[in-house]
Design a protein around this nucleic acid. Structure first.
Length: 829
RNA sequence: GGGCGGUUAGCUCAGCUGGUUAGAGCGUUGCGUUGACAUCGCAAAGGCCGUUGGUUCGAGUCCAAUACCGCCCACCA
């Protein structure tokens, strides 16, 4: 079936998508002898707000998958959805306007399952429409049974290795989400604040000025610290001080972490205002006063202020301090406060009992693991290493929430012993199940652990979940360690780091050979324009795909290199549309010369080996040589995950060298009567078009497939490659015999001549198709001159000269077009 | 405060291990039915490659300092 005059992606893309699904083009073949390329796909957090930015990093991973598949590798490219834990709960709460506390735990979990499942269908639709070459037989949800089982198994294994522990300790707490969180869940937020200097009174009645931004923590003040070398405070070391309003007596202590430069140099230590307080509390064995409860309100120790929120209490206490004339100074200040990244609520440090995974003892191992992985771009490794170096807390994995993977354990009500679930029974819900055996103390009374695991504690097992670690060892052995982890940069410290940590703890190896870090597709000015046209919302990706094409969106997504953020640009998408149109038109042009070939040997007929070099024109030799170098370069770039440079090289070659120049040079032979010349041109054309669409197939899977199906796969099957689809066909190989420096020099000369003639016509207002009488050329180099002679058909074709005349010198009466050391050219009109 | 990335044509960006007149797309201007393509083609204009030093026969490309922009990290009184 000949190619349609106009390429209509809106109808063709969905057809091809269906074809790929039905034909199983992207199936992973377990047990196959080909080398495996396995991808640890990021399970997107199901957030319910899909925008074009989501397509950005996922396109990158797909390009790699397609490249490796065409390279002959058995590509394992699964998909997952991260739908357990706090992010999903927050979504459900905001979307349905309910809270778990209101409707009860089990009803809430049911809502979470329902909402996330509906949204996941949207994600899947988008991924399929975008053309991601995922094998949908391998999908997972981080809340599904296999994930829960894997996650609980991980916990039990680590427990038995002594790598997890439960401890009553100051923990990072989000008063809004009402749960403990981990260091990695904390972000910085700048806000306006007030630094007030208060007068604390020593026993002798003297006043000690102390600055604070958190006066509401006064009831929890347990000590005052000064620097040991601070001259001002040598005398008061060890003295007792009265805390304003609350009147408890605390001691002045010394510690090098007290900075004489800050505030008055004397600082109050409260349990707990920040991590330094925690440090001092621990190292100086101070008392613990809990002033803030789990809802973020002041406790009874705050007396009249009990029950007030932190914010209200701060103001009320300030007012009282003011009335009682404790305030020496007030300074407005911008302060950086740690907040919970999910809700931007300032965190508190609250004493509570939590489960932790040991990290601080393993920093060296984690750093070494980072060095064993290839990072793309390389500088992203620095973020990982910095994070590991600065770790200050073990990994708090317990969350006081509802929707997630439960801890697989109970506590004995008699002796407090931890009873783990049986491995065979995983996954368990300890609230519904119970232990098989009585506790070693003989008791049969158990209390289930009611917390859930940090969502990262599960998603950090993604290689094990998707590789079916616990239920399909053959598969797992084939895919693990994974070839590639693609992900975005903001989750280096969470997903990447935790996955590396888990892999180290469980298997003493790194989870992947390489990690490819994508940037973000972010809303920019272009988005404003887009959103305006549809009433203000962000641009929905399916709408953009419908308006332009999946290929065009992918073109935009692969235009900025690995690791870089990029603005969502409708303009860039439009350029992608132009490229697909150009490809289509080139293919339609080529089709008429290729369709009557005796191609009974399938696509191999015009493989490079079949080209008879004797009859190739200089233009053929030039473009064939250039194409070999292109294949070499693009392959290397893609091996190194540099999709943007690869795409740009192919695009330039295709548009500037092949379409603008080569096609114009070979037309005369294609249309001409000389069958020998015609066959040579057709062979070159066949090879080049096939090479170009293959190279572009990872980027523009739809239009290249449409061309491949329309022109190259209407013959019998090839013996050497799977030509059901361009995406299972073989990646182009470099043919050294076609690489030829001299041919390239000749080709460049031909282009120079063509450009000079075009410029002449353009400057003289002539149409490009205008015939010229004679083109006279002269080259000092005899070999070059001989090639120019041989290229007369190429030159006539592109310049429309009636006659090409190659001689030793130019006729001075003619118009000189070019005069360089290499080549001189003149025309006669 | 420490670290990383960026600073190249009006805009968005390429420029690999330093080497002839610095590239592309968009935009601008002019011209044009080349027997595939007007969702096009051809051509033109447009840059002291952030600043200042240094290394070198030669630097956008290496080194140092510096200024902005962005990000990561840090104990944020």
């Amino acid at each position: 079936m000949p190619l349609e005059k106009r390429y209509d992606p809106k109808t063709i893309e969905p057809q091809l998508q269906t074809f790929w699904e039905l034909a199983g083009i992207y199936r992973f073949v377990p047990g196959d002898e080909r080398p495996v390329f396995s991808i640890d796909t990021p399970p997107p957090t199901v957030s319910g707000n899909l925008h074009l930015g989501h397509t950005y990093s996922y396109t990158h991973a797909d390009v790699f998958a397609r490249f490796h598949r065409m390279r002959g590798e058995n590509v394992f490219y699964p998909m997952g959805f991260d739908d357990n834990g706090l992010p999903t709960e927050r979504l459900v709460e905001s979307q349905l306007g309910i809270t778990a506390a209101e409707i009860g735990r089990s009803a809430f979990i049911a809502k979470c399952l329902q909402v996330s499942e509906e949204l996941e269908q949207d994600y899947q639709n988008l991924w399929q429409r975008l053309g991601l070459s995922i094998d949908w037989d391998y999908t997972y949800r981080t809340i599904d049974e296999c994930s829960r089982k894997t996650s609980q198994r991980s916990f039990i294994d680590l427990f038995q290795e002594g790598l997890v522990y439960r401890q009553e300790a100051p923990s990072i707490w989000c008063p809004s989400c009402r749960t403990a969180i981990a260091q990695a869940d904390v972000d910085d937020l700048e806000r306006e604040s007030q630094l007030v200097t208060l007068a604390f009174h020593l026993e002798n009645g003297e006043s000690l000025p102390i600055a604070t931004t958190r006066p509401e923590l006064l009831p929890a003040c347990v000590a005052i610290f000064v620097h040991p070398g601070d001259e001002r405070y040598q005398d008061i070391f060890g003295q007792r001080v009265n805390v304003p309003i609350f009147d408890q007596q605390v001691t002045v202590l010394q510690d090098p972490m007290a900075d004489p430069e800050k505030g008055s140099g004397a600082v109050m230590c409260c349990t707990f205002g920040d991590t330094v307080d925690k440090h001092w509390w621990y190292t100086h064995q101070l008392d613990h006063v809990n002033a803030i409860d789990q809802q973020g309100n002041l406790t009874e120790v705050a007396g009249d202020f009990a029950g007030l929120s932190v914010k209200k209490a701060r103001q009320a206490i300030l007012d009282t301090l003011d009335q009682q004339e404790y305030i020496l100074d007030r300074q407005p200040t911008t302060q950086i406060v740690p907040v919970h990244e999910r809700c931007d609520t300032p965190v508190e440090y609250i004493m509570s009992q939590q489960w932790f995974i040991r990290l601080l003892d393993f920093k060296e191992e984690m750093l070494a693991a980072g060095d064993q992985i290839k990072w793309h771009p390389a500088h992203m490794k620095a973020r990982y290493l910095t994070w590991v170096e600065n770790l200050a807390w073990d990994w708090c994995i317990s969350r006081q929430r509802y929707f997630g993977v439960p801890f697989p354990l109970w506590y004995c009500q008699e002796c407090g012993e931890v009873i783990l679930a049986d491995l065979e029974k995983l996954p368990v819900d300890p609230s519904e199940d119970h232990p098989n055996e009585p506790c070693s103390c003989g008791s049969r009374k158990f209390k289930p652990d009611e917390d859930i695991l940090d969502t990262w504690a599960t998603s950090s097992m993604s290689p094990q979940i998707v590789g079916r670690w616990l239920c399909d060892d053959d598969l797992y052995q084939q895919v693990y360690p994974f070839s590639l982890r693609p992900q975005a940069h903001e989750i280096i410290r969470t997903w990447a780091f935790y996955t590396i940590a888990k892999s180290h703890f469980h298997f003493k190896q790194v989870p992947w050979n390489a990690v490819a870090i994508s940037g973000w597709g972010i809303a920019g000015e272009g988005m404003g324009k887009i959103s305006k046209s549809r009433g203000g919302g962000p641009s929905p990706p399916l709408e953009m795909i419908d308006r332009y094409s999946a290929d065009a969106v992918r073109y935009w997504a692969t235009s900025t290199s690995m690791g870089k953020d990029t603005v969502i640009s409708e303009e860039k998408i439009q350029i992608g549309t132009k490229l697909t149109t150009k490809l289509w038109n080139v293919a339609r042009f080529s089709e008429r010369f290729l369709e009557d070939f005796d191609a009974s040997h399938g696509v191999d007929k015009y493989s490079i080996a079949g080209i008879n070099g004797e009859h190739l024109s200089p233009a053929d030799r030039w473009i064939l040589s250039r194409s070999q170098r292109l294949v070499r370069r693009v392959s290397l770039l893609l091996e190194n995950y540099d999709y943007a440079a690869a795409k740009s090289e192919i695009e330039n070659f295709f548009w500037r060298e092949f379409a603008d120049n080569y096609l114009e040079m070979c037309k005369q032979r294609l249309y001409g009567e000389d069958m020998v010349q015609r066959e040579a041109a057709r062979a070159a054309l066949y090879h080049l078009l096939l090479t170009i669409i293959k190279l572009l197939a990872p980027f523009l899977p739809y239009v290249t497939e449409a061309i491949f199906q329309g022109i190259f796969v209407k013959y019998e099957p090839s013996q050497s490659e799977d030509v059901r689809s361009i995406h299972t066909s073989s990646w182009p190989e470099v043919n050294n015999n076609l690489e030829d420096d001299f041919a390239e020099l000749v080709g460049e000369t031909l282009v120079e001549i063509a450009v000079s003639v075009r410029r002449f016509k353009s400057e003289n207002g002539m149409a490009l198709g205008t015939d010229i009488q004679r083109l006279q050329l002269s080259a000092d180099d005899d070999q070059l001159a001989a090639q120019l002679e041989r290229a007369s058909s190429d030159l006539i074709s592109i310049t429309r000269a009636r006659e090409i005349d190659v001689g030793n010198h130019l006729d001075q009466t003619l118009t000189i077009l070019l005069d360089t050391r290499k080549i001189k050219a003149a025309i006669e009109l």
